[in-house]
Design a protein around this nucleic acid. Sequence first.
DNA 1: GCGATATCTAGTCACTGTCAAGATACCGTT
DNA 2: AACGGTATCTTGACAGTGACTAGATATCGC
Lengths: 198, 198
Amino acid sequence: MARKTSYHHGNLRAALLKAALEILEREGLAGLTLRKVAARARVSHAAPAHHFPTLKALETALATIAFERFRDAMATARAAAANDAAAQISAAGEGYLTFARENPALFRLMFVESQLDWSDAALKEAATASFQQLVEITAPFADQLGLASEADRAELQRLVWANAHGFAHLYIDGKMPADAKAPDLARFLMPAKSPPRS
Amino acid sequence: MARKTSYHHGNLRAALLKAALEILEREGLAGLTLRKVAARARVSHAAPAHHFPTLKALETALATIAFERFRDAMATARAAAANDAAAQISAAGEGYLTFARENPALFRLMFVESQLDWSDAALKEAATASFQQLVEITAPFADQLGLASEADRAELQRLVWANAHGFAHLYIDGKMPADAKAPDLARFLMPAKSPPRS
DNA sequence: GCGATATCTAGTCACTGTCAAGATACCGTT
DNA sequence: AACGGTATCTTGACAGTGACTAGATATCGC
């Protein structure tokens, strides 16, 4: 129950996270400060300390939420796509990019290692669950390409991830035209199905 | 002439850049502050202002230097490789990754758009020269793959870049095992020459 | 109902980037 | 050769930051 009476907020932790997400969206990663978060939650500058002892702790909690949304974005895109290896690869890539495009500040926060506390169990779990999406779609893709050895399958795994991750980064850094689409790996790797010969 | 006499430094601008690069290497991007740079150059905290009116200006100058080294890293790797499309693609990717691995803080600085002044001509030129390396190697690669349309060639271009960029980012963020190698695009896209069938 | 504890406020500290004012050395003109 | 203008550097200040301490207030267990 959010109480207006005073002093005790009711659910300050949630309110701080909400305020932080709003600031992140409006001002970007550089604009995120503990004091602004506190002010936006109508609370003194030292109030967050009890819920998030340090800025890094707040950012870690934010990243955990972000990884959950990130996973959902990929899962939603996959669910809307056909259930074959190529379509799933493309869909997951789309989900990856969509999340980055709609939440550039969050995306950056998630992937600047030194800024987060990776000893936090919740963060590790959320991140692992996200990346698991990529593992799931790569296996049938590798089968279809006839990759047998673990080394080859691992390399394909890295390729799938690097492609999605790299394009997302380049896109939010303004290095790609606004209407550029993510490279479709399936299209290049499975020429038998849809050869890029235009 | 670096003069020790006092007051006038001699070549403070260069000394500041040198100090900044050292701090970047030792303490990472978050540890880079104007005051630390000034202190390391044995100069008062406001001395940098005349050479770099703002922190962003210093970072822009650093990024310009970084892009030049970045281009050199790729050029060196390419020069040491065979002169065929596949080898050049792999070599450029190696150079890309090597630079990121050896200069993670610089690499991050180069690719956080909001932190740099992209209206700066020198920065834009250095960055363009770097990316030109990728354009050069992609053309013969596209020829060899039989890609004719501009759309297909552009998509291959994005794929080459995204793969290198994404792997580099994931690597310096600790998302890849220390001994992981960058995915070899040529190996996957030209199965006739070296099929990944292990 | 009452005390222990969780939660929040107020004040402070060192550090940051930036600005203003003044001191010092250099450089071109005469 | 001297002198004035200018570029360079120092000192001092200000607001904003994360983090810490001490104290005020509300909630919860008993």
